[in-house]
Amino acid sequence: DEVRLHVNGHTIEFRGIDEEIFKILEEAAKRGADEEELRRLAEKLLR
Rank of each mutant, 00 (worst) to 15 (best):
D18F: 03
A33G: 05
L46W: 09
R15Q: 10
E37K: 09
E36F: 15
R39P: 00
E13N: 05
D34L: 09
I21D: 09
I21P: 00
K30Q: 09
E37T: 14
R39L: 11
E19H: 13
A33W: 10
V7A: 04
F22Y: 11
K44V: 11
L38D: 00
L38I: 13
L25H: 00
G9V: 02
A42H: 07
L46F: 08
T11V: 14
I21H: 07
V7D: 01
A42N: 02
E2K: 12
D34G: 10
L5K: 01
E35M: 09
K44H: 12
E19W: 13
I17P: 02
G16N: 07
I21Q: 15
I12N: 01
I12S: 01
R40T: 09
L5Q: 01
T11M: 10
A28G: 03
V7Q: 02
I12K: 00
D1E: 11
I17E: 03
R4E: 06
R39I: 12
K44C: 10
A42G: 04
L46A: 07
H10A: 07
F14T: 01
A28T: 07
I24Y: 09
F14E: 01
D1T: 09
K23T: 06
T11G: 03
E35L: 10
F14W: 03
I12F: 03
A33I: 09
E13Y: 13
A28R: 07
G16W: 05
R15T: 13
F22R: 05
R40N: 10
G9D: 04
E20R: 14
D34T: 11
L38S: 00
R47K: 10
R39S: 04
K44M: 14
R40I: 10
E20D: 09
D1P: 08
A33S: 09
A33V: 08
L5R: 01
E26A: 11
I24E: 06
A28W: 15
N8D: 07
R31D: 10
H10D: 05
L41K: 01
K44E: 08
R40L: 11
L41F: 06
R40V: 08
N8Q: 05
I21K: 08
K30D: 05
K23W: 09
K30H: 09
I12M: 04
L41S: 00
A42E: 02
E20W: 15
I21S: 12
D34K: 10
E35Y: 10
F22S: 03
F14I: 07
D1L: 13
R47L: 10
K23L: 08
V3N: 12
D18S: 14
D1Q: 11
E37Y: 14
R31G: 09
R47H: 09
L45V: 03
E26F: 15
E19T: 11
G9W: 02
A29R: 03
E27N: 09
R15K: 10
E13C: 15
E36S: 13
I17V: 06
A29W: 14
V3D: 04
E20N: 11
G16F: 05
E19G: 12
R40F: 12
E35D: 05
T11K: 03
E36P: 13
D18K: 06
E13I: 15
V7L: 07
K30Y: 15
A29E: 02
F22I: 08
L5D: 02
A42P: 00
H10P: 01
R4S: 11
R15E: 06
E27L: 14
D34Y: 06
I12H: 01
E19F: 14
A29M: 08
N8W: 01
L45I: 05
E27T: 12
L46K: 14
E36H: 12
F22E: 02
R15S: 11
H6S: 11
H6K: 10
L5I: 14
L46R: 12
E13L: 14
E27H: 12
E27Q: 12
L38F: 04
I17C: 05
E26R: 13
K23C: 03
H6Y: 04
T11L: 07
L38K: 00
R4F: 10
H10I: 13
I12E: 03
R47E: 09
L46Y: 06
V3S: 07
I17Q: 02
L46S: 11
E2V: 15
L25Y: 01
K30I: 11
K44F: 15
R15Y: 15
R4A: 07
L45N: 01
E27S: 09
L38C: 02
E2C: 14
E37G: 09
A29Q: 05
A29K: 02
E26M: 11
L45F: 07
F14S: 01
I12A: 01
E37A: 09
R4Q: 09
K30E: 07
R47N: 10
R40W: 14
I17N: 03
E19P: 13
K30W: 15
E37C: 11
I21W: 04
L25M: 03
R39E: 02
R15N: 10
R4N: 05
I24V: 11
G9E: 03
E43F: 14
I17D: 03
R4D: 02
I24Q: 08
V7R: 01
E35H: 08
L41P: 00
